[in-house]
């Protein structure tokens, strides 16, 4: 009985130690990876660089061709603007503003001819991604896969 209580007390003590000594998240570098994909209904093709997300895209879209046009990595501080030029005189602007729990708050803006055509604010799971699609390009559309990771 005494041994059992001792074990419980030791485990509780270790738990409390970890809980109260857990450092506050004060990381400031956000690695943001922007993949610009051209999705179309042409000859079946999947770019090798899209292996991680292709099954998710194919579960939603009926496109048969997914070409990776650009893969740009941005190492951003919070509230630092990251810009990725897109085909068709478009640009993607991403700003990681802060953390909310284990998620990164992003402000995302798509511009065309220096005019904002789409903006959103999302809470992105750390080490995860979101895909924004819709801008017309050639015979298909552009899919913008944005992943974020706090260093």
């Amino acid at each position: 009985m005494g041994g059992f209580i001792k074990t419980i007390l030791i485990l509780s003590g270790i738990s409390c130690f970890y809980f109260f000594t857990q450092p506050a998240v004060a990381k400031s570098q956000v690695l943001t990876d922007v993949k610009v994909i051209h999705a179309s209904t042409g000859t079946r093709y999947v770019d090798q660089g899209l292996k991680g997300i292709i099954s998710e895209l194919e579960s939603v879209f009926k496109y048969t061709s997914y070409r990776l046009l650009k893969d740009q990595k941005l190492n951003l501080n919070f509230n630092q603007k990251g810009r990725v030029n897109l085909p068709g005189k478009r640009a993607l602007v991403v700003i990681p503003t802060d953390m909310k729990g284990k998620r990164i708050r992003y402000q995302i803006n798509i511009q065309k001819n220096n005019h904002s055509i789409f903006q959103t604010r999302v809470l992105l799971k750390n080490n995860s991604s979101i895909t924004i699609g819709g801008p017309q390009f050639k015979d298909g559309v552009l899919l913008l896969n944005i992943s974020g990771s706090v260093q």
Partner: peptide, 29 residues
């Protein structure tokens, strides 16, 4: 994967999709 807090666009049609398998968030306009 992402919680969409706010969307503003010049276009009328916007869809927010979450895939079944990985709960990957897709915004489509």
């Amino acid at each position: 994967s992402a919680i969409v807090k706010y969307v503003d666009t010049d276009f009328a049609s916007v869809m927010i999709i979450e895939t079944q398998k990985e709960q990957h968030t897709i915004i489509w306009f």
